[in-house]
Design a protein around this nucleic acid. Structure first.
Lengths: 129, 129
DNA sequence: CTATGTACCATGTGAATAAGTGGTACATAG
DNA sequence: CTATGTACCACTTATTCACATGGTACATAG
């Protein structure tokens, strides 16, 4: 498995790494059960920070592309090949897009939508003021 | 109609003004067909900037609380009393809240939700990278 | 000429956020 | 002791945005 990270790309480093690993899974370069390099090892090889690799690994585990087994290391998830096709971010984008379009159709300003969104994300669903 | 604006309040000035006018409508202080002070006049009386008052007026017109008639001035909308009860911002908040909770339930990170939201608001529903 | 709403231009301020870096520490198990 | 993933802490950098301000200008119609 050879991974190239472009520091100058506008795509975040952790996202690039995620994409590369997903690609490796979908192309069969790595298969379910295969072991992956440790966070520290991969960070060292790619000249990345541990946290950056850890972030990518955490998200990949959430997406059931990989599975960490604590001190035993990290492995490709048994159902990785099925799960690489599901893009959570795309799903989220679709959900949000529908809602936003509905709000716009009701006449809401983008500014108002943004403010409402921010309030919700901060659990400040303020009513009066 | 007496309107008080609190410069030190955390509520934005234009929002305060909107709330005051809505209140005046719902309490009957002003009635459909009544004329409202001009933007410049009200800005002067309340010591606000023209743009701030104009913003409040524009949003109130969108919400069909008031109706501007060009050079003839601004008036309380015929159906103002019915429309003051509908809070577009609250409706937007509800829509967004439901969608966001659904995304969270799918495992999406708040950060991911924010990024997807930002991309959509910028019409950059990027697919690849 | 005056007043209406409206449309541009621009600026400043403050807050929130993403991304990444860095360090320390922990329990686990070989 | 070493290596695993993981959890905290704090910090910098850059971007985006809401809000408010200021000025200029326009067509409209009295």
């Amino acid at each position: 498995m050879q991974i190239m990270i472009d520091i100058d790309a506008e795509e975040p480093l952790f996202a690039q790494l995620m994409a590369e690993i997903k690609l490796a899974v979908s192309t069969g370069t790595i298969s379910p059960g295969d072991s992956l390099p440790s966070i520290r090892q991969l960070a060292n090889d790619l000249n990345l920070n541990n946290k950056t690799v850890a972030k990518a690994y955490q998200l990949l585990e959430r997406d059931k592309i990989i599975a960490t087994k604590g001190y035993r290391g990290t492995f490709v998830h048994p159902e990785a090949k099925e799960n690489v096709d599901f893009d959570l971010n795309a799903w989220v984008s679709n959900q949000l897009d529908q809602t936003i379009q509905a709000c716009r159709n009701q006449g809401a300003t983008d500014s108002e939508i943004r403010i409402a969104f921010t309030n919700i994300m901060q659990n400040k669903i303020r009513g009066g003021h």
